[in-house]
Amino acid sequence: KKVTINGVEIKFNNPEEAVKFALELAKRLNLRIEFHGDQIKIE
């Protein structure tokens, strides 16, 4: 399963991993996060 985070394609074994990764990243950098299907936007 491929997920695009800020235009960067990252391959994950499952979608939950991708979501956890994105949330952790957003929390660490104190950023806002948006989900659009397989696209995750962090700003």
Score class of each variant (00 low, 15 high):
residue 1 K to Q: 11
residue 2 K to C: 14
residue 2 K to M: 13
residue 2 K to H: 12
residue 3 V to S: 00
residue 3 V to E: 02
residue 4 T to A: 04
residue 4 T to D: 02
residue 4 T to I: 15
residue 4 T to K: 06
residue 4 T to W: 14
residue 5 I to W: 13
residue 5 I to E: 01
residue 5 I to V: 10
residue 5 I to F: 14
residue 5 I to S: 00
residue 5 I to L: 09
residue 5 I to P: 01
residue 6 N to F: 14
residue 6 N to Y: 11
residue 6 N to L: 11
residue 6 N to K: 04
residue 6 N to V: 07
residue 6 N to C: 14
residue 7 G to E: 03
residue 7 G to T: 03
residue 7 G to Q: 03
residue 7 G to A: 03
residue 8 V to S: 05
residue 8 V to R: 09
residue 8 V to M: 11
residue 9 E to H: 08
residue 9 E to I: 12
residue 9 E to R: 03
residue 9 E to F: 06
residue 10 I to C: 10
residue 10 I to N: 01
residue 10 I to R: 03
residue 11 K to N: 13
residue 11 K to A: 12
residue 12 F to L: 04
residue 12 F to K: 00
residue 12 F to H: 02
residue 12 F to E: 00
residue 13 N to W: 07
residue 13 N to I: 11
residue 13 N to E: 12
residue 14 N to W: 06
residue 14 N to H: 09
residue 14 N to D: 11
residue 15 P to Y: 15
residue 15 P to K: 09
residue 15 P to H: 14
residue 15 P to D: 11
residue 15 P to N: 10
residue 16 E to I: 09
residue 16 E to F: 11
residue 17 E to V: 07
residue 17 E to K: 07
residue 17 E to S: 08
residue 17 E to M: 08
residue 18 A to E: 01
residue 18 A to G: 05
residue 18 A to R: 02
residue 18 A to H: 01
residue 19 V to I: 14
residue 19 V to W: 13
residue 19 V to K: 06
residue 20 K to G: 03
residue 20 K to D: 07
residue 20 K to M: 09
residue 21 F to G: 01
residue 21 F to D: 00
residue 21 F to K: 04
residue 21 F to S: 02
residue 21 F to R: 03
residue 22 A to F: 11
residue 22 A to H: 01
residue 22 A to Y: 08
residue 22 A to R: 00
residue 22 A to S: 02
residue 22 A to V: 13
residue 23 L to T: 09
residue 23 L to S: 05
residue 23 L to Y: 10
residue 23 L to W: 07
residue 23 L to F: 10
residue 24 E to F: 05
residue 24 E to Q: 07
residue 25 L to F: 08
residue 25 L to D: 00
residue 25 L to S: 01
residue 25 L to T: 05
residue 26 A to H: 02
residue 26 A to E: 03
residue 26 A to F: 07
residue 26 A to N: 02
residue 26 A to S: 07
residue 27 K to W: 08
residue 27 K to L: 13
residue 27 K to C: 12
residue 27 K to M: 10
residue 28 R to C: 13
residue 28 R to Q: 10
residue 28 R to M: 11
residue 29 L to D: 04
residue 29 L to M: 07
residue 29 L to Y: 13
residue 30 N to H: 08
residue 30 N to G: 11
residue 30 N to W: 07
residue 31 L to H: 02
residue 31 L to E: 01
residue 31 L to Q: 01
residue 31 L to I: 12
residue 32 R to K: 14
residue 32 R to N: 09
residue 32 R to S: 09
residue 32 R to H: 11
residue 32 R to T: 11
residue 33 I to E: 00
residue 34 E to I: 10
residue 34 E to R: 06
residue 35 F to K: 02
residue 35 F to R: 02
residue 35 F to C: 11
residue 35 F to S: 03
residue 35 F to N: 01
residue 36 H to T: 13
residue 36 H to I: 14
residue 36 H to Y: 12
residue 36 H to Q: 12
residue 37 G to Y: 10
residue 37 G to L: 09
residue 37 G to E: 11
residue 37 G to I: 08
residue 38 D to K: 03
residue 38 D to T: 06
residue 38 D to H: 07
residue 38 D to I: 05
residue 39 Q to P: 02
residue 39 Q to N: 14
residue 39 Q to H: 14
residue 39 Q to K: 09
residue 39 Q to C: 09
residue 39 Q to D: 13
residue 39 Q to W: 15
residue 40 I to W: 04
residue 40 I to K: 01
residue 40 I to F: 02
residue 41 K to S: 10
residue 41 K to P: 01
residue 41 K to N: 12
residue 41 K to C: 13
residue 41 K to R: 13
residue 41 K to E: 05
residue 42 I to P: 01
residue 42 I to Y: 03
residue 42 I to V: 08
residue 42 I to E: 00
residue 42 I to N: 01
residue 43 E to V: 15
residue 43 E to D: 11
